[in-house]
Amino acid sequence: MAIDVIDLRDFYSQRLGIVARRLINRGIQAHWPNMEGQCVVGLGYPTPYLGLFREDCERCIAFMPAAQGVLKWPTARPALASLVNEFSLPLQDAAADRILLVHALEMSDDPENLLREVWRVLSPSGRMMAIVPNRRGIWTRTDTTPFGHGRPYSRSQITQLLRQTWFTPSAWGEALFVPPINGSWFLRSAAAWERVGAALSLPFAGVHIVEATKQVYRPIAAKREHSRLIPVLPPVLAPSSCSTDE
């Protein structure tokens, strides 16, 4: 289900991809304006968006799933990107302050286990943010962009998935109201599309931007203990002592 890392890189180097990155970055920055002193981890293909935090945060790492592939990032500096098993991240428990998921949930074969692994490495006071294709959006109707691949989600589906994996949604946003058309007029008017779409709460945004907090005391399924059955034994005659009259 995962899209190849080369296709992702090529999309974000095109004019449509540049516009999409700029619009989504606005939504991310609205929720996370200051990352100074934070440890930020991106999972999926987050490198077009981690540039917002790389200069200010304490540590910034990009993890890319093995099925997708990895590219060096940043290109002109020591590498901060690594190829990983998305269900077994090379981090200790509660190691990250912020985790950004981009092209991750919709591409994963097991999104529940992916989010449980994110829960493990996120600090108790941390935040997780996911950029997820909107099931009702126009961008999911075409496979010419990465947002048209994988499984899109409705808002209720994301909420259910987060609650099943011990997260609580804390903030919502949308982006990519502009149609995914490479025409010059559409790209020049992208900011106007975003303003109108957000003001009218139109349902066809390309992506959901959801922030969630970690449930520190997660629910644990109760196991019913079975009482130990003691078998009933049939009665047995006890041996009696025999006396002999002399």
Rank of each mutant, 00 (worst) to 15 (best):
I209C: 07
A94L: 03
V5R: 13
L43H: 04
P78G: 03
R195K: 14
Q215G: 09
R218T: 02
S82C: 11
T140Y: 03
A198W: 15
S189F: 06
G183W: 06
L237Q: 06
P180W: 09
Y153R: 03
F177T: 03
Q157R: 13
D110W: 01
H31P: 03
A238K: 10
A222Y: 08
V178D: 05
L16M: 15
I24L: 06
A130G: 09
G27F: 05
Q164E: 10
Y49A: 00
H103C: 11
A96L: 01
Q164N: 03
P90L: 13
E225V: 03
A66C: 07
I99L: 14
A2P: 04
A67V: 10
L161S: 07
D143G: 15
L101P: 04
M129N: 01
S88D: 05
P152V: 01
V232L: 07
V5G: 05
I158H: 02
M64F: 07
D10A: 15
R98I: 04
Q92E: 12
P124H: 02
E246Q: 07
L89Q: 03
I181H: 06
Y45G: 07
E36R: 13
I61W: 08
M128R: 06
L91G: 05
Q164V: 05
R163A: 11
L16G: 00
P90A: 00
E106I: 09
W185N: 04
G183A: 09
W193Y: 10
I99G: 04
T145N: 00
S123W: 01
P65M: 01
R22N: 15
V19L: 00
R188Y: 02
A175T: 02
D10Y: 09
G69P: 08
P180S: 10
D10L: 14
I209D: 00
V118Y: 00
L200C: 15
P179V: 09
A205V: 09
R195F: 15
A62Q: 07
N25A: 15
E211L: 12
E246A: 08
A79Q: 14
Q160V: 06
A104F: 02
S189C: 10
F87Q: 11
A30T: 01
G126P: 08
I209R: 09
G42V: 03
R228M: 10
F53G: 01
E58K: 14
D56I: 06
A171H: 11
R135D: 04
